[in-house]
Simulated scan of single mutants.
Amino acid sequence: MEKHMENMAMENMEKNMPEASLEQHQAALYTLLCELDTVCRKLEIPYQLFAGSMLGAVRHQGFIPWDDDLDVILMREDYDRLLAEADAVLDHSRFFLQKEFSSHWPMFFSKLRLNGTTCLEKFHPKDTACHQGVYIDIFPCDNASDNALMRKMQFYASKFVVAKSLYRRGYETDSMKKKIFMQLCRCLPLQPFLSLTKLAGRGDTQYVHSFLGGASKMEKSVYRREWFDKQIPMTFQDGAFSVPAEYDALLTTLYGDYMELPPEEDRKCKQHAILVDLTHSFEEYEHFRDGMTFDILTRSIR
């Protein structure tokens, strides 16, 4: 009887689901960006828009029209400071800083989440206490060795970190190769691979990397350190936010001819989430994904 009532309640929720439009979702992401910017200004911590968000600022002066996420990146020292000091100035009534490798969040990067909202992604979380509100991604930028072979070892080490974290969070794939790799990684200790990936204390190298930013190709994730030395403000929606002064070199590395729009048929949202609700908290959707299977989309947002 209790299960039947639960199913009826879920059916009623689905019928009356106030799902957000892409424009409404982007407006929520912009709210999160403004709060992050406020926090970083108060703490005097530099950050930059990154990847598709940097491309959006340069090419569209805001979101790529079909984009549904927002990424920022910080040098590892600044990233660690943000995680250590942000709680003192963050508006906790509205926002939640989901820190890497923290309680209920086993991932290798961080997120700023909007309280009282829902953003259900395409996986079944193993920890239902995980905050699943609308979010922006906060990635670290780590030291990369000047030795090409060592950089390759760092890249492969990052794959172990990613796979181990995804297994703990919950990750579904039809690839037998990925399943075997994840099972192997779950048995191995995290710290040696994470240490190699970060190469802490080597701020004298010529290169940095974003391997822990979901990199699929090594050559698109290694950058000259000086590309991040200076930031400039750039219009993004109704405000101005930091991008690297060397954004042209970065965007060319990431996307090639980045000012050229993709073919119209490719201008589609990646659809990170199966549901975005800006008026109800994720706790109300605890069993929403039960029994669902997902087609994970991985194409570039360009």
Rank of each mutant, 00 (worst) to 15 (best):
L74V: 04
M75T: 08
D80W: 03
R81K: 12
L83T: 06
L83V: 05
A84I: 05
A84E: 11
A84M: 07
A86R: 02
A86D: 10
V89I: 09
V89R: 01
D91K: 01
R94I: 08
R94W: 09
R94H: 13
F96W: 05
F96L: 12
F96Q: 04
L97C: 06
L97I: 09
L97R: 01
K99D: 08
E100N: 00
E100C: 02
E100W: 06
F101V: 01
S103F: 00
S103T: 04
S103N: 04
H104G: 09
W105D: 03
F108N: 08
F109M: 05
K111F: 03
K111D: 03
L112Q: 00
L112E: 03
R113P: 00
R113G: 00
L114R: 06
L114F: 00
N115W: 01
T117E: 13
T118G: 01
T118S: 11
T118V: 09
T118D: 03
T118Q: 01
K122C: 06
F123S: 04
F123H: 11
H124P: 05
H124D: 10
P125E: 06
H131D: 15
Q132C: 12
Q132K: 14
Q132D: 13
G133P: 14
V134Q: 13
V134D: 12
Y135N: 11
Y135S: 13
I136T: 02
I136D: 04
I136P: 07
I136A: 03
D137N: 10
I138Y: 03
F139I: 05
F139S: 03
P140F: 12
D142N: 12
D142E: 15
N143E: 11
N143A: 12
N143F: 08
S145A: 15
D146S: 09
D146R: 04
D146L: 10
N147Y: 09
N147H: 13
N147F: 11
L149D: 15
M150P: 11
M150K: 12
M150C: 13
M153Y: 10
Q154A: 06
K159W: 14
V161G: 00
V161C: 06
V161S: 01
V162Q: 12
V162H: 07
A163I: 11
K164E: 09
S165I: 14
L166R: 12
L166I: 07
R168H: 14
R169F: 14
Y171P: 02
E172R: 05
T173H: 04
D174Q: 05
D174S: 09
D174T: 06
D174A: 10
S175E: 11
M176C: 03
M176R: 08
K178S: 14
K179S: 11
K179C: 08
M182Q: 14
Q183N: 14
Q183H: 13
L184Y: 13
C185K: 01
R186D: 15
R186L: 12
